[in-house]
Amino acid sequence: MTESRFINFALPPWLSAGPAMAVLLFFLAAPLCIVAAYSLMEADPHGGVRAAFSSEAYVRFLFERDWDGNLALDGSYAAIFARSFLLAAAATALCLLAAFPAAYCIAGQPPERRGLLLLLITIPFWANLLVRTYCWVLILRDSGLANTWLSALGVIASPLPLMYTDGAILAGLAYSYLPFMALPIYAALEKTDWRLMEAARDLYAGWWQTLFRIAVPLARGGIAAGCIMVFIPSLGAFIAPDLLGGGRKLMIGSLIQLQFSSSRNWPFGSAAAFVLLAAVLLVLWLWLRRGGAQKAQW
């Protein structure tokens, strides 16, 4: 017994995990360390960093040197973060609203039809994100599809201002990330015993009660995965806010991108990326801690 074990597992565990660790180290830990290091250095006026310690980048989040050079409490960046979080949360909610019924319906179909429907759900994925987002420009602008059709139907007399609104940003984000939400929910629902829905109907639950009391809780793992996968890219999104929101408000993504280009403040850009990462991890941790305790039981 002992011998055969030696033959099967010639490598000690810490070594057999080596390749995975190396990948993590190289692609995750190393870049993160670089970002962390940059965030604590001084900015080079021509872009890049100078090897000197400075915590200025972090101080800047809450305190801004005011117009006269004094440090003062400043909410601008906090506001940008809050706005980005709100927008990402709204996009996640919208995705959930659209994706859950879709996934529920697909999971209830006969198996041979599910494949085709799943394929249809993932079609937006096949196009480049920029192209996908630009499609919404063509739909929402004054001379776009939506307004053309509505006025052709006589519903509206003059074009509705659909573009360059928060709603437009939301539509673009939700559309872009819908498959990220629909697929994990579908995977969760597909695994659950469909007779549980029948059992609920049998026990006097209506359609909605069955959905909320049985289907939603059972798909919770998929919902959580979907929410994470939509929320995080939405948080860093800058294409949709710029293209569909008209770039009228800064989002975290644009803020960070700006620091590495024309603002030439790499330390601040790195710090912003780091604070964003920390915030996301914090939100995830809180979420998992809340849902995890119940889930562990079944």
Partner: peptide, 14 residues
């Protein structure tokens, strides 16, 4: 100058 530019930009777009 860039820091001031950045400040102006943030205030416009906040």
């Amino acid at each position: 100058a860039i820091a001031l530019q950045d400040k102006v930009w943030t205030e416009i777009k906040k």
